[in-house]
Design a binder for these strands. Structure first.
Lengths: 353, 353
DNA sequence: TTGTGGCACTCGTCCGGAAGGAGCGCTGAT
DNA sequence: ATCAGCGCTCCTTCCGGACGAGTGCCACAA
């Protein structure tokens, strides 16, 4: 990444990796003697001390106080996950265990819930799943129901399975018969097309044929336009926040509170996940890299998931920076894949339920 | 309450109250010297010691260890809130501040959200609101939409404003026309009546006229029965759980975790609130009185709220047992009243939105 | 030049004991 | 009944010493 990392020779790399692994596994600053032994290198502790001094100069590790062992810095972790990390492949059993949690017959919402609780339970950290963007889902049907003076309930059936409804506030009042006719008109023209297409088509018609159509149809188009407007559900599913209470490096109450608050608000979580949606592999955020100060001592591991070859969302976990990346990364990875295929299977056979 | 409390003479009562107030305000065990001074009584510390020994014998206070001051027990708190507590009336400004948080134009959901976040912010503890039971709300309209083979979407419009929809899985398949006819039948017979009445009527018809009606109508009744079945939204709105992280008497991570988990699951919270729905005034639960072990060191203050003179739900706060009941009780009380009237106003003029 | 062993020094942690203070129970006097 | 006094218990805080882990530096060997 940056030039200081390029200059690391093989021994330095080995020692840095061993140091970080050791620190991750027991949370204690690691000293030269132990590091020399653990590294497997045939060098003395004194030599290791010299190397450690170099690494400290480059900002990769630091000593909490004089004559304590060394601890990785954010930059150290960064280098570690970028070029030193060797992930363990998840075992067959693990994969099966995760897969068994995805019921192919379940609704989208249930699948997302499963994914985030699987993530949280398997990693013992907090799991989160960004809702899938609606890609080329087909509009099956649209209906209107008059609620009262100028208030209309629009019901969209998508993909023959999911239902959304919205209350529209209109300028003028329509009778139920009017509404029925408009729904018929829209259904005849639009049913089966993707939401995207439908919107585009409505806008086009509105511009092109404004003068040729009778008022009724114009109103219908306008209504459809309103009903379909702004449809992406900007949300995220989280699970297992409380797992984070177990990590003593997060024991600062004020920080912890900000962290949990972020999960409640969901806004910042959403921002983080949206940053990760570009890129097609597992991504890792370390500490404050994301710019949030409550993120000290926390890291995020994310992976995008896709349906039909197209990335539709991101999922991931959030936990202490001192986490077993070699274990967590493949779990997140495989969960993303499995969620993708579960959604995929579902989308192909809407009648399977 | 129990007979030990009856026997308290005036001086004992004063001392117990002073002790608890003092402990609530600074969290330290209180000794005889300080208590004698704070009580305002013209007695010496030695006399106070004697009284304290009596109170300890009756299980109202206890010493954390030999020669420490005394601390109230659960029973002590109980007696305190039942017969010693003098609540401070909330100031006009406080009431106005709370009232201003309830926007009369807002939806039910928004009002409940406001209520629970007001509770949490004003008391600096966690706030919760039990969803209102649907009482005599009128069914305005019912519609059915065919989703696919045997799957039907039922749409209920209630009170002309709220919309609920449910997906029904049916044995046999109906065409959209069939469904339309059944909806017409049900609307003609039932619209405008209360949900309660409607259910009762459907059940009665089903039993009485099973043989006289044609299959179509029978099916309609059956469908309506399914669509209306089990309609109460068993849920609760919570806010400000993270406030609880600030109290050092709840600093035990494991307990804290169970506590937050309870807020996530909502089930136990619901149980607690449901216990409080009987009774028309503020109620207080102290420590494990509710039988939950994670409740150690916690208390709940609740008040029912009513619309049209009928109790429809409960709201309250949960916080450390060592809380300022004199401040919290009136806040909960007034919030319940204001939520009630906000809902009431709203219900009377369904067109105001 | 690079690695190594040795040595002095720095900190943090872990007792143990002493001092101080808060508070209790008991008793005898009013 | 109330109260002052006394002896006692226990918690907290502070201090100093022992210990161990670890560092930095230097002189020396390969």
């Amino acid at each position: 990444m940056n030039d200081s990392s390029i200059q690391l020779d093989s021994r330095e790399r080995t020692l840095l990796r061993t140091l970080i692994e050791s620190y991750i596994s027991d949370g204690q600053p690691v000293g030269s003697r132990n590091l020399a032994r653990a590294s497997g290198l045939k060098v003395s502790a004194a030599t290791v001390r010299n190397v450690m001094a170099d690494l400290e100069d480059r900002g990769l590790i630091q000593a909490p106080h004089t004559s304590a062992g060394r601890v990785p810095t954010t930059a150290g972790y960064r280098l570690f996950v970028d070029s030193l990390l060797e992930v363990r492949k998840p075992s067959r059993e693990q994969i099966d265990a995760i897969e068994s949690r995805f019921d192919p017959g379940a609704s989208t919402q249930d699948l997302l819930d499963s994914a985030s609780s699987v993530l949280s339970q398997v990693t013992r950290m907090a799991g989160m799943v960004r809702l899938p963007r609606h890609r080329n889902v087909a509009l099956s049907q649209i209906e209107f129901l008059r609620l009262g003076e100028g208030r209309v309930l629009a019901i969209l059936v998508i993909d023959g399975r999911e239902v959304q409804n919205r209350v529209l506030e209109l300028e003028r009042d329509f009778s139920q018969d009017d509404l029925q006719r408009m729904a018929n008109y829209l259904n005849a023209h639009l049913a089966g097309k993707s939401l995207h297409t439908v919107r585009a088509e409505l806008l086009r018609e509105m511009r092109e044929v404004r003068d040729d159509l009778d008022a009724q149809m114009l109103a219908a188009i306008d209504l459809g336009e309103q009903a379909l407007g702004d449809e992406d559900p900007d949300d995220v599913v989280v699970a297992g926040q409380t797992q984070l209470l177990g990590y003593e490096e997060l024991a600062d109450m004020e920080r912890l509170r900000q962290l949990l608050e972020a999960f409640n608000e969901k806004r910042e979580i959403l921002g983080i996940l949206d940053q990760c949606i570009r890129g097609d592999r597992v991504q890792i955020f370390i500490g404050r890299e994301s710019g949030l100060d409550w993120f000290e001592n926390c890291s995020v591991v994310t992976a995008p998931y896709s349906v039909d070859g197209e990335v539709v969302g991101v999922l991931g976990v959030i936990g202490p920076t001192r986490m077993s990346y070699d274990r967590v990364v493949p779990i997140v990875d495989v969960t993303a894949r499995l969620l993708g295929s579960a959604l995929n299977v579902r989308g192909e056979s809407p009648d399977s339920q």
